[in-house]
């Protein structure tokens, strides 16, 4: 492991992408993730890569489509409103079975909203804002170290399953500087016989999501995609548990909300209240089974989010017990307060 360095989350994801072999990056400026394009504009030319500021997020995701279709490891990054503009492109990329990495540093919404961190795009990320039956892998880091490590994994997952992988952070994670160690490349390589490289000595490759005839051609294609999604659901769930084994009260939270929940749990434990944290890292595929098991012996499951409540629906799906599931959230870019979490959990016990 290389020694520790101090970097903003936005820059760490850029460097990690380069370590992962990403040599093509297309993006458009939007707060709070501007350091990513700025960093890539400086670093990519140093490693013989391509940095291009597109005319819009929408153009950028279609440049990603092209570079990926050409067989390259490629990334884009944006924040909430920009990610909305990319949704059609993401649907095409998923439909054409193309790998790519999309970084989303969420900010307050809806609409222009504000530039504070938020988690109000959970639905957009995990349920897909584009058209059609498709999924993308969504990974939610909670520290600069994890953000860097997850970036390496994201490129491998994208190539392995030929699927877009979204790294979902909040503006806070992007703006925060923390000491961390640069990850090592995974060393994995992936053949891409399907890529567009010029049909020398082979039949032409075609990269497309359209399937017109025969009538059920698209259904067959979607069922093929589903096989991939089922395999990912089975193999690629990631989560962290903290003091869960004996927990009477479980807090379910990801990203920045999980960091705040952790400090609340430490306080509660000092008061002898057995609270624990279930932190999903893969938001799709969601850890339903694991959360169900963990929640089985808990009295109460409190979901903490920076939204009006979106992941809480997945928590309900996992726990299947309305009485047990509670929700506390702040919206519009506000941070949940550990004091409020502590007050609620204390109340459960009284």
């Amino acid at each position: 492991m290389s020694d520790r360095i101090l970097m903003k989350g936005n820059e760490a994801v850029g460097e990690a992408a380069i370590i992962a072999g990403c040599r093509h990056y297309f993006a458009y400026p939007i707060t709070p993730q501007n350091e990513i394009p700025a960093y890539m504009a400086k670093r990519l030319p140093e490693v013989g890569g391509t940095f291009l500021q597109a005319e819009s997020e929408l153009a950028a995701i279609n440049m990603v489509f092209g570079a990926s279709a050409a067989g390259a490891r490629v990334m884009t990054s944006s924040s909430s409103p920009g990610i909305s503009l990319k949704q059609e492109g993401i649907s095409y990329i998923a439909g054409a079975e193309l790998p790519c990495v999309i970084v989303d540093m969420m900010r307050g919404g809806p609409g222009l909203g504000n530039i504070a961190g938020s988690q109000a795009d959970y639905f957009q990320a995990t349920r897909g804002g584009g058209n059609g039956d498709y999924r993308i892998i969504v990974l939610a880091p909670a520290s600069v170290q994890e953000l860097a490590d997850i970036t390496i994994e994201a490129f491998d997952l994208a190539d392995e399953y030929r699927i877009p992988v979204m790294i979902l952070g909040e503006g806070y994670l992007g703006q925060m500087s923390e000491p961390f160690s640069l990850p090592e490349p995974s060393g994995k390589t992936f053949e891409k016989p399907w890529a567009l490289t010029g049909a020398k000595g082979r039949k032409p490759n075609i990269i497309a999501s359209m399937r017109l005839t025969p009538e059920n051609l698209l259904e067959e294609h979607n069922l093929k995609l589903k096989k991939t999604y089922d395999k990912i659901t089975e193999k690629e769930v990631r989560y962290e548990s903290y003091l869960l084994d004996d927990a009477d009260y479980i807090i379910v939270a990801y990203g920045t909300s999980a960091r705040i929940s952790r400090s609340a749990i430490i306080e509660l434990r000092k008061e002898g209240i057995k609270a624990g944290l279930f932190r999903p890292i893969s938001l799709w595929p969601y850890p339903y089974k694991e959360l169900k098991k963990a929640a089985s012996h808990a009295k109460k499951v409190l979901t903490v989010e920076m939204s009006l409540g979106q992941m809480v629906e997945d928590v309900r799906l996992a726990v299947m017990d309305d009485e047990k599931v509670d929700f506390y959230g702040r919206t519009g870019g506000m941070l949940p307060e550990s004091g409020e979490i502590i007050r609620r959990v204390r109340h459960y016990g009284s």
């Binding site: 093509h24 440049m63 059609e88 497309a208």
Partner: peptide, 27 residues
């Protein structure tokens, strides 16, 4: 791409120049 016997890519409506940019920047 069904009629010209070369590698071909789809593009979302209006986005062919962006897709072509991505391809050409790689190759």
């Amino acid at each position: 791409y069904n009629y010209i016997d070369v590698d071909g890519s789809e593009a979302a409506h209006g986005r062919a120049p962006a897709v072509a940019t991505g391809i050409k920047r790689v190759h």
